[in-house]
Amino acid sequence: MSAQQLDVTSQAYGSTASEVMASIQEKIQTCMQCGTCTGSCPNAFAMDLTPRQLWRLAQLGQKDEIFKSKTFFLCSACYFCTLRCPRGLPLTETIDALKRIAAAEDIDMYKSSTRFYGSFMHTVRRYGRVKEMEFMNRYLLSMKNPLLPFSFASLGMKLMGKGKVSFEVPKFFGKGRFDAMFRKVEELEAK
């Protein structure tokens, strides 16, 4: 990747959502719509927009259309599109920039994903490391869906049976291990 291409993502902090979108739009201009990303994507079959279509909308700056689509949250970060893009665009990292906009704007249709990542980061902020069960419980609580835990119950029981995880109630108050570091990042990003 060249320095110029990296700008797509490294400029995506300390900026508003529309500035991030503008920087993505600018840098994705060299996309020639060849579709190698779509052909390489293992999850394209489940997407409403193919990756190629997503990058076309990004070129045109059509933020509203992009954020009606589930496509970027179906990225599993396999990096095949990044590896194969004939323009050398850092597509997987650009997807992350889109995910950051969705998280910052707390868009309802993405909450199963944004809250998953958000719960993970709360756990990191509190303990410095991830306690897997604490994180999953935090996530399930944040989703407020009484049926959701059942889709994880079978694996959870297996893991508890092996003594790999133990039931942990998330703590919501008190000091966190990384409070100071997270605050410093927030401070720099607000500049």
Partner: peptide, 13 residues
């Protein structure tokens, strides 16, 4: 401590 996993880059670069 945690490397950030795939979660951190979905929240803050």
């Amino acid at each position: 401590t945690c490397c950030g996993a795939s979660a951190a880059q979905s929240e803050s670069y």
